[in-house]
Each structure stands twice: as C-alpha cells, then as structure tokens.
Design a binder for these strands. Structure first.
Length: 564
RNA sequence: GAGCUCAUAGUUCAACGGAUAGAAUAAAUCCCUUCUAAGGAUUAGAUGGCAGUUCGAUUCUGCCUGAGCUCACCA
C-alpha cells in the first residue's frame, strides 16, 4: 500500500532533518480537497524543533525522497502536509479490484495467526431475540474480517442449557406433559416451551410449593437425574434445532457449539485446584476469588451448596477452548457490557492459573443492548422481539413496497436487519423502534445492494469486455471519476482499521459513502454512451465499485442479489 | 455509598487530538423521451454546563447535571 511507502519516506525525511522520536500520523483527510493522505506531524514538531510549523512542513516537503507515486505535496495553513497520489496508481489498484481480487493487508493478534470468536450464546428453552441478532451479526462480521486479514478463525458458541430459567420452563412442561405428543412442527414446540417458561416463572413467584419444586428440578438437572433427564434433553433438542434454523437463516454457522452443562464437572475441578494453589479462597462456605488485591470485585466460583457458578463453569470452558484447537492468539467473547466485571475476574483467575496459556489472550468484545422504546426486553413482560418474527416483518414490508420475488425479499430482509445493527458502533445502545430502526431506504442494506444491482445492470449491457486490456493513465479523468477512484483505493485500509479497532461499522460507513458517490456519478455521467476511452474508464469504475460493495457486504456477513 | 459507561440536528446514529462536526429520517422544492427513481439535486437544523491541558478538543483531565450498568453464592 502507498500509505506504507509514504510513512517510510516520511521516516527517512525525519532522519535527514535529524529527528527520529516522533510518531507520524497519516490518514485520508475528512475533506477530499485536502488530498489522499494528510499528516499533522509538522504541527507536532513545533515544540521540539522550536520552529514555525509551516517552515517545518516546507523542510519535510523539500527533503521528501523522490518517487513515482506522489503527484504533489501541499502545505496548508497551520502546517498540514497533504499528499496527492498519482492517478495511475489509483487506476492500477482499481484495475486489480475489477478482477475480483482482493489483497487485504495481513494483521495478526499474535504469532499463531489463529483466533477464536465466541458469539451468539442463546440460552436453550428461550427465544432467539433481536439482542442475539445483534450479537450474531457482530460476531459473524468479526470472524469474516479477521479471516480476510489472514487469520485462521474458530467460530464458537457457548449456549446455556442449565440454570433456573430452564428449571422454570421444565416445571411448566411437566404440568402439561400430555400436550407434548400433539406438538408437530418445530414452531409449535418452540411456542409451547415459551409459554411453559412464562407459566413456570409466574408459579415461581406466586406459589411457594412451586418454587420448591422448581429448585428441586434445577438440582435434578445438575445431577442428571433420570426423572428429568429425558424431558430436559428432548426440549433442549427442540431449542438447538430452532437455533440452527436461525443460524442458517442469517447465514452464520459454528465450528463448535459448547453447552454449559458440559463444564459443570470440570469447572468445579479446576476451581478446587485453584483453591489448593491459593488463587481462590473459602469464604462463608463458598469458594471465591478475592479481587481486592487487583482492584477487582469479589465473586463466587463455587457456591455454599457446592455447585459451580457461572464463573466456575467458565474456568472449565476456557480450558477447553484453549486446548481444543491448538494455541490461540486471542479468544474474543462477544458479550453485553454488564458482564464486564465477570470477565475481568475470570480472565484474572485464568491468568493466575496458567499465565502462559491465558495472559492477554482473552478479550471481552462489548456490544450493547438492543432496547425497546418501552425499555428493556423481558420474557416476563412478553415484549420480546423474536429474531424470526422481526425478519418476517421486514420481509413483508419489502414485498409490499417493492416488486420482487420471495427469495430476493428474504435476502434483503436479513440484510436490512443485519446492516441496521452493523452500521452503528458496537458500543452504542440501540433504541429499537419497529417503524424506524430497520430502514430499507437511506443508509440501509437495500440502498447498497441496489447500487450493486445498478452496476451489474450496466455491466450486463456492455457488448464487449473492455476490462481485459490495461488502461493507461489518460488526462480525461474527471472529478467524479477521480473521487470514486480515490474512494475505491481506500477499501483495504478501511478493512484493516475495522479489524484493528474491532469496529465493523467503519466498513458499513465506507460502503455507504462509496455507494452514495457512485450514485451521484451515475446520475451525472453516462457510462455506456460515452466515447470509447471514457467508456472504458467508467466501466472499470463500475466493475470495481460492484466488486467492492459485494466484498464489503460479504465481510459484514450480508448477501447481495443480482436483480431487484 | 463505590466503580464503570454514556450525553452530538425534532428523532435515530457517524466522526483517528486536526482543517468547513458527517449521514439517515421527518419538512419544503425540483429532476424519469437518458445505462433500474429502492435513485439524484437544493433549502433549514446539533457537540448538556463550567473550568483546564493543547498551535488545535465532540474526542484528553477535573467538577456539575442527567441516564444506564455493575458491586458474593442467577446465568
């Protein structure tokens, strides 16, 4: 990338001037009038060199090594140095992209070039709701962009299949056991356990006897008691089958599905070993981690009844995750922010257990809640927005508003939902509104896909393949074309930035800007009716735009359509 | 009570310590004899308050106000 070359040259320039210890910033400026790359290093050097920033900038400009990729260097007002890349460099890149080849720069989080992304984590016996949808969209795109920059990525998913909520549900199921046989479709089964969960939850609060029974069921699940085992397993299977359908629908999958029940035993063993080593300690009948020394909270790993808590089980899970697939550089947990304390502590305990294995290798990627206008979702209130239901609603809206077939509407609906989550930063709370939140116009997936389809439509009408020959730099590149060439050139850097900061929204924003610029270009400049040379250039731009949009959306986990 | 996070147009969101704070949406007005109008153009609108650091602050620091989350046997 030219960015690297400019940086290297700036480094050399600094050495010539006699300064070394300055970190050089170099980014595309917000305003394209200021060139392709801009640095404010001269401003930062004012103090060190005790000179006017503009003078320093001049000095840098004059000492910048001769090269064949910079068109011009400008110095502006307070002391910015702006670089303009030669158009033929941009053309070369766009030409390579027009053949659907994408070479992203590599970026690794460690020497193993292998990471795990743990995401989705729904609980069985519960609905897969919009919150999970945001999680899975985020996790899926993280997987894809990490792969794009050269990592082997393991997709994992830790699904809760034990706990009080499941006992509540099974209590309800037990009370209406006779109905089970009449349930035929998966949909009916899921609705049934949903209702039974509500029933169990109410009983738990209103009826002391029921509460005792639910606690007993909870213990039986942990003990794998034959009395409850068959129902637990059957209903769990319904949930897992249902989750699989959702994963498929949103174009996601996993290499490894972990279940919480798998780590009950091993978690307890690991916690006890940690107790012997003095990492954990006994307190009021429980085994806890005293975080005070480290400025952390104190949390329970094995409760006073002798059961491992979520924390305890996490130790078993971590051990497995870090051994099953060889050495990992990083394990990225895509989880909501209220678990920050939980992760800080489990990560610390793991580090104390085996520093080499765990230290700096666990990462909590915080993604925020999807809240409803009325407040937080809760199954008790019955205001859960189920993932499938939401996608169906959007699909219906699309079918009503536009002429397209079912298959296209399905892809566009899933795309709309995913994109509306991914275009905002992961750490922003989404205030969900059915009418406004999932948009199919403006900055939306259909807008991007429409732009792609437009490109395809033009390309399909072309009677000869003008893209096979190499375009040489001509002076006829107009401003609209140049803007697009420069924008296209930024794609790999944007992807790199997105991985670097775990911020897929950078890609979404970039794709929107690219589409927007293309649509403006399209409006003003005829492509197929232009003279031969111009037409070749414009077709090249069209092809490259289409490829970048398609690839960019793919990195976001979003499919495109060819016609709409 | 302690700690963490957040506060930007009417609304929902962007912005790496940088240049004129970007969009979408809602409103008004234009553009289909031209490659898909699910498009494009124009107009109007915002950094909670007070200090500080800096050549430069939405971004960093402190205080204030307001919201959310967490702080031992749930997951």
């Amino acid at each position: 990338m030219i960015k690297e070359q400019i940086l290297k040259n700036l480094q050399k320039t600094l050495e010539k001037i006699g300064e070394k210890e300055v970190d050089i910033d170099l980014q595309p400026p917000t305003n394209a009038d200021f060139g392709d790359y801009s640095t404010s290093m001269a401003l930062k050097l004012t103090k060190l060199l005790k000179k006017n920033p503009v003078t320093i900038a001049e000095e840098i400009k004059n000492n910048f090594p001769k090269n064949d990729f910079i068109e011009k260097i400008d110095i502006i007002k307070p002391g910015f140095i702006n670089f303009w890349i030669k158009p033929h460099q941009l053309l070369d890149y766009v030409q390579s992209v027009s053949t659907e080849k994408f070479d992203f720069p590599h970026f690794h989080l460690g020497k193993n070039e292998k990471v795990m992304v743990e995401f989705a984590h729904p609980n069985t016996h519960k609905l897969f709701h919009i919150g999970h949808l945001r999680n899975i969209s985020t996790g899926e795109t993280m997987v894809r962009i990490l792969e794009a920059v050269g990592n082997k990525v393991i997709r994992s998913n830790y699904q809760g299949d034990v706990g009080l909520h499941i006992a509540k549900c099974l209590y309800g199921v037990q009370s209406e056991k006779s109905k089970i046989k009449s349930l035929k479709t998966l949909q009916e089964k899921i609705e049934f356990i949903g209702k039974m969960y509500t029933k169990g939850t109410k009983a738990y609060e209103d009826d002391i006897k029921a509460k005792e029974e639910i606690n007993r069921i909870n213990k039986m699940i942990y003990d794998q008691d034959q009395e409850i085992l068959p129902v637990w397993q059957e209903t769990k299977k319904w949930s897992l089958d249902y989750f699989n359908e959702v994963y498929k629908r949103v174009d996601s999958h996993f290499d490894r599905l972990y279940l919480e029940s798998e780590f009950y035993k091993r978690g307890m063993e690991v916690a006890n070993e940690a107790l012997k080593k003095g990492i954990l300690e006994k307190s009021q009948g429980a085994i806890v981690f005293n975080g005070k020394k480290y400025g952390l909270d104190t949390r329970v790993f094995i409760n006073s009844l002798g059961f491992p808590t979520y924390e305890g089980k996490e130790l078993g899970l971590a051990e497995k995750e870090f051994s099953e697939f060889g050495e990992l550089d990083k394990n990225i947990h895509v989880v909501t922010p209220e678990q920050t304390s939980f992760f800080k502590i489990t990560f610390k305990v793991e580090e104390l257990i085996d520093e080499k294995k765990y230290k700096n290798k666990q990462h909590h990627l915080i993604y925020e809640w999807v809240k409803l206008k009325e407040g937080k979702m809760s199954s008790r209130e019955g205001n859960i927005i189920e993932a499938n239901w939401l996608i169906d609603q959007i699909k219906e809206k699309i079918l009503k508003q536009f002429k397209c077939n079912d298959k296209t509407a399905e892809i566009l609906a899933v795309a709309s939902v995913k994109y509306s989550f991914l275009k905002t930063s992961t750490q922003t709370i989404i205030h969900f509104d059915m009418e406004e939140s999932i948009t199919v116009d403006g900055n939306s997936a259909p807008y991007l896909i429409y732009t792609y389809v437009r490109c395809q439509s033009v390309l399909n009408k072309d009677d000869y393949n003008s893209l096979t020959r190499k375009l040489v730099n001509s002076n006829i590149i107009n401003n609209d074309e140049l803007i697009l060439l420069r924008k296209l050139y930024q794609f790999p850097e944007v992807v790199l930035k997105a991985v670097h900061e775990f911020s897929p929204n950078f890609i979404a924003t970039y794709l929107y800007e690219l589409s927007s610029q293309f649509n403006l270009f399209y409006q003003k400049n005829p492509i197929l009716k232009a003279d031969k040379k111009t037409k070749e250039l414009r077709l090249l731009i069209t092809k490259a735009t289409a490829n970048v949009i398609k690839k960019g959306l793919e990195l976001l986990g979003i499919k495109t359509v060819e016609k709409m």
